[in-house]
């Protein structure tokens, strides 16, 4: 299925990626081409087939519910573009 410019604008919004108006046309074309190509899958009968959830058959292990790591606030904010007093700083969200 081809997508139109409005759909591209909507998914760009959902993906939190700004798409400038002059890029919209080309992107719409590219995404439409890719979506048309993946639609070959429609030819294959998948009725009654379970969607794959895990490629290797295994049971998830249990572990003790214990703190294994922590007190690393400085490490965690070390790479932040902006931090203060051990917190991440973002533009004001509450007036």
């Amino acid at each position: 299925m081809a997508v139109d410019k409005d759909t591209v604008a909507k998914i760009a919004k959902l993906a939190r990626i700004r798409v400038e108006p002059e890029q919209q046309e080309a992107l719409t074309q590219e995404l439409s081409n890719i979506l048309r190509w993946v639609e070959h899958l429609g030819e294959l009968d998948t009725d009654g087939v379970e969607p794959m959830t895990s490629v290797v058959e295994m049971n998830l292990k249990m572990r003790e519910d214990e703190v294994a790591d922590g007190r690393r606030q400085n490490d965690i904010v070390a790479n932040a573009p902006e931090s203060k007093h051990g917190f991440f700083v973002v533009p004001r969200v509450v007036e």
Binding site: L41, G42, L44, T46, E50, P51, V55
Partner: peptide, 14 residues
């Protein structure tokens, strides 16, 4: 239509 379909196809390929 897309994601679940693809995961079913993945099951068949495996």
């Amino acid at each position: 239509a897309y994601y679940n379909k693809a995961r079913k196809v993945r099951t068949l390929i495996a």
